[in-house]
Design a protein around this nucleic acid. Structure first.
Lengths: 210, 210
DNA sequence: GCAATACGGTAACAATTGTTACATAGGTTC
DNA sequence: GAACCTATGTAACAATTGTTACCGTATTGC
């Protein structure tokens, strides 16, 4: 495991910390669609993402959902961070966007390493900063963009995360992520197709022009 | 100054840290409406709020705005935090909601105290957590609520922050905060008045029934 | 007092988004 | 292949929000 950790976090953490991670962390591999965190649950370990992507959603009490952002290699979940440190409940839902490989850090180490390693502090602060920025960018999207632009941004984010121009999603799944209805998504996708931006087929959306 | 700091932060920080704050911080008093941070500017000091309230807005490039959340006594600005630590530019705008008294901590102390004082680390993490939660609650409002409920929530937040049931705002100012138009706000406020929830007068909105 | 400006009420209309309903096509199961 | 399920297309309509325009009334500056 140590080599894989070094490959992904070697530039961030000093040797001693990398060794500690290797000693106490447990390795975890999850398939696409796996639900890592559900709202209201308590969290006992913090994930570092080795590869793959995780999508973070906000869910309200009625089962409504909204995509907040994606996590990638080198990222960690800021909500988990603060849940660990502050012993709060989870406020979000995390689902594997692709197959993913993670290492899980036990909660107890968080406080300790934050005092001990400057690089760990920097990592944690940077994570918080990035998530706050991303949350605010999500606010931008919802507040300032219309649904057609939000959809386009969503498709672009997806292609970036999955590193392919072909998105294997039903319109209904997209509708959940953007918190709207399937009919609205179908309508707007059709318009994008007429404008030559995407090509539609059953279960797939191909982006042909950015 | 030391006494005022102790009154507001004594329960959070140890004596030694309170003394350090007193030694290096500068006191600042700002009037209602004062613009503390504008988007794109660099930040060299971190504010701790002694009393009053600060409102934090997201502004896009076209001058559109949206209220993110309020800061109160005992709060600090997480965006400023991460700007200081990560040397990023400001992504937000901060305006004094009421007259306010602050102490400003020089950036250099941040790293130092984060290593040195457990209570400071806890404070910083807690601040990040609270802001992230509030940003996500803002997302909830925009994504899941209709404008009438957002307006009502806004009015309630205002009364809580200002500790009075009478809000001295024009409809236009509210429209800016919620990123909609004056006409929409007037329309919805009128409906709230017809339902006996508020009483309207020029420049004032009185909440008569929660 | 008078003019200028700011604030709020209202109507009419446009644009966007949400909802319901139903049709059609592809794929699966047996 | 028949029956079934899922995904998508489309129309018609409703609800919400945004826009423009115009009016009357307070407030301010002179």
């Amino acid at each position: 495991m140590i080599q894989e950790i070094k490959n992904n976090y070697g530039h961030l953490f000093e040797e001693e910390l990398l060794q500690e991670i290797n000693n106490v962390a447990t390795f975890k591999e999850v398939p696409e669609g796996f639900e890592l965190i559900r709202p209201g649950s308590y969290i006992t370990a913090m994930p570092l993402i080795l590869n793959g992507a995780i999508k973070i959603l906000r869910g309200d009490t009625d089962g409504d959902e909204l995509l907040l952002y994606f996590l990638e290699r080198g990222d960690t979940c800021a909500m988990t961070l603060s849940c660990c440190l502050g012993h709060h409940k989870s406020e979000i839902k995390a689902v594997a966007e692709t197959n993913a490989r993670l290492v899980m850090i036990p909660v107890e180490k968080m406080e300790e390493w934050t005092a001990k390693y400057k690089s760990w502090r920097a990592f944690v602060f940077e994570s918080y900063h990035k998530r706050l920025i991303e949350a605010i960018e999500t606010i931008d999207s919802i507040a300032f963009l219309k649904m057609d632009d939000r959809l386009l941004k969503y498709l672009k984010d997806k292609t970036k995360i999955n590193q392919t121009n072909i998105i294997n999603n039903t319109h209904q799944q997209i509708a959940y992520d953007l918190h709207t209805s399937r009919v609205v998504i179908s309508r707007l996708l059709k318009k994008l197709e007429q404008n030559g931006i995407v090509k539609l087929n059953r279960n797939t959306i191909e982006i042909v022009h950015f």
